[in-house]
Structure formats: C-alpha cells, structure tokens
Design a protein around this nucleic acid. Structure first.
Lengths: 133, 133
DNA sequence: CTACCATCTGTAGTAACTACAGATGCAAGC
DNA sequence: GCTTGCATCTGTAGTTACTACAGATGGTAG
C-alpha cells in the first residue's frame, strides 16, 4: 500500500471520535504502537484506525485500559481465545451490574429526598437532616 | 465538656467507617476543620464525629466533595437553605440517572456478548469480533 | 512576508483517595 | 533498664483515564 493512504493524527481523531491528546496518551502507555512517521508527524494506516476503533469500543463497554491491552492482544493473536475473552467480559459485566446497583440505591434515596424537600417541610430541610441524621 | 470526651483519629475512623488517611485528607483539603490537638495528636469531639458522618453519607449518595463542602455549610449555617440543597440533590440525581443509563447500555451489550461467546461459535470469538467490527 | 494551521514534546492538572516511608512517643512485658 | 509494639505523625508519591496547557516547528495561503 502506498504511503499516501496513511492519515495524520487529526484525521484519525475525526474518524474515531477520539481526542488527539488521548491518542498520544494511548501511544505513550503502550495501548497503541508507535506509528510510522513522515518527518516528525505520525501517520496511521488502516490497521492503526482499526486498532483505535477497537480500543474505543472496548472503553465504551467500560473495560479498563489494562484489560483492553489484553483484549487487543487476543484479537491480534488470533486464535482460540474466546474463553479468556468471555471471562473478561463476565468480570466486566459483574462490575457494571455492581455499579448499577449502587447507583440504583443512590437514585432511590435522592429521589425520596428531592421529593421530601419539594413538600415544603415545617421544621427544616429533610435533605440536610437526613445527612445529619 | 471535659477534654476526656474527645477521641483520637483511630477511634473516629472506627466509628465512622472512614479510613484514617481519608480523614486527614479531608482535613488537608478543608472539608473538615483542623481539630484540637493533645500534643501532636488530633482529638475529635461529638461535633467532629457528626461532621464526618455527614460527609460520609453525602459521599454515599455520590455528591462530589465540592458539593459536600457547600452542603456542610448549609447544614451548619442553619436556615432557609432547603431550596439550594434540593437543587443540588436534583443535579446529583440527574447525574446518577445518566450514569445508570450508561451502565444499562453496557450491561445489555456485555450480556449479549457473554451469551454469544458461551454458544461456542464456529468462526471466531463473537466478543472480539464485535470489538473489531 | 506574514498569518494561520496542524502538529510536535513535555509537563501538570483533575477526582478522591490510597499507600507508603520514616519519625515519635507511650505503655506493657521481661 | 530495655525492648517491643502500637498508634499516631508528616510528607510525598501512586492510582485511573484522561485533559489542558505552554512553547516550538514546519508548511501552505494570501
């Protein structure tokens, strides 16, 4: 493939919706390999675009970067790694469900308090009193 | 009240379930006032215990520390601050609901992928393929 | 020739803790 | 008297995942 089919970092940013600073950050911490350069400018080919898109999708599912690293290795290693991948997805799912349960509890309490505050209590603020106990 | 009714930081930690390091951190950033000292040791009275308990409860509802600061001021200012408090609770509730919606989306996708991986596909790992697109 | 644009490097800031390292002082046990 | 252990102290650095500069550079457009 000709070198003209590569794109600069700004274009990669636009295509993936990923911040330029974040792309450079990913490179610095080894999530993305250092791309070839034309002079001092980074140039990305289709493989680079795909890798970053992969990372973004994984991040959207909440996978921590360390896990994304492993996931990338599995995807690029190509093979019978479904078990390991599923294992990580299960861990992540459990984490997400736990966080959601936390948020549910918070939302319930906050909803009650907002409601109680709206009722215009006589003594004091129900919210501040609930926090003061 | 006699000085013997005050407790050291370890006891405060035990009573509130708040890490000692976290208590000192709160003091450093001005969430908690610097307590009196007996020699070089911090001593907390019932007011100190109450303040920290307030902070913990607010944090359990997900309020950011900056908001907790304001909430504390409202609670200690004592007055007609219910409107402002409710306003903050509404903001926080909106934030919690938005985060929960994010987690819901993640959980749905992750659940599907875990399920698909469990089905033992022929070609490759459905999870890795979904991320690769 | 100057203005502008994208890019570069390197560092520091964000939120809310958490985790040391190394010092100090007191009380109990031998 | 001496040692051991405990709780506390201060101060600094690490965590996660970015984000936000400052200040330099190089190429193109008017």
């Amino acid at each position: 493939m000709p070198p003209s089919s590569t794109i600069p970092i700004g274009e990669l940013s636009r295509r993936t919706g990923c911040n330029i600073e974040t792309i450079r950050y990913y490179e610095r911490i080894g999530i993305l390999p250092a791309p070839v350069r034309r002079g001092r400018f980074r140039r990305y080919d289709s493989g680079g675009v795909r890798r970053l898109a992969f990372v973004r999708r994984a991040r959207e599912l909440g996978f921590p970067l360390d896990t994304v690293r492993t996931l990338l290795a599995l995807a690029e290693g190509g093979g019978h790694s479904c078990d390991q991948a599923r294992q990580m997805a299960e861990t992540q799912l459990a984490d997400v469900l736990a966080k959601r349960a936390d948020l549910d509890r918070m939302a319930a309490v906050l909803g009650d308090l907002v409601h109680a505050c709206g009722a215009g209590d006589a003594g004091g603020c129900p919210l501040l009193e609930a926090l003061s106990d």
